[in-house]
């Protein structure tokens, strides 16, 4: 009896710490557009980041940006600047800020905020054209943001 309680308490404590490590979109702290704190406390996976950046249903960064490193992915856009050397031009915190909400860096930009859930006009249910109902998911998860940041840091 006593043992079960202890395990349960330990388990619950474990769960809360895991949750506490993920910064929710409302709780991200910016400093001049940059976000210093990791959103998950886990290191990002650059390989996964490259995949997210080039996959249409995920980050789809290549819709707007050319990235020479991803040349085997067809059709890169030219709405945003070439991302070669992004890890050189920006710090990790600045890149995280650009991904979470690029309008904190470039006020009028057309680049979407990938980790934001509030403040939208006529929010739809994904690409159905219908009104959104219920909880809003950011375009990328906290770990996906960390993965893309890790990938961009490899673009030196």
């Amino acid at each position: 009896m006593k043992r079960t309680t202890i395990t349960l308490v330990a388990l619950l404590a474990g769960l809360t710490t895991a949750n506490a490590e993920t910064v929710t979109p409302e709780n991200v702290t910016f400093e001049e557009g940059a976000v210093a704190q990791s959103l998950t406390g886990q290191p990002g996976d650059a390989m996964s980041g490259a995949k997210i950046a080039s996959t249409k249903s995920q980050g789809n960064c290549v819709a707007c940006h050319e990235i020479t490193d991803l040349a085997d992915v067809p059709f890169h856009g030219e709405v945003g600047p070439l991302l070669d050397g992004a890890g050189d031009r920006w710090s990790e915190a600045e890149l995280r800020g650009l991904l979470v909400d690029s309008k904190r860096t470039f006020e009028e930009t057309v680049m979407p905020a990938f980790y934001k859930t509030t403040g939208f006009n006529r929010l739809g249910n994904a690409y159905t054209g219908k009104a959104h109902e219920g909880d809003v998911e950011p375009l990328l998860t906290a770990q996906q943001i960390e993965d893309v940041v890790a990938y961009l840091m490899t673009l030196q």
Partner: peptide, 9 residues
């Protein structure tokens, strides 16, 4: 076009 912004059209 509006649907493609993930909006309620």
């Amino acid at each position: 076009c509006i649907r493609d912004t993930r909006a309620h059209t």
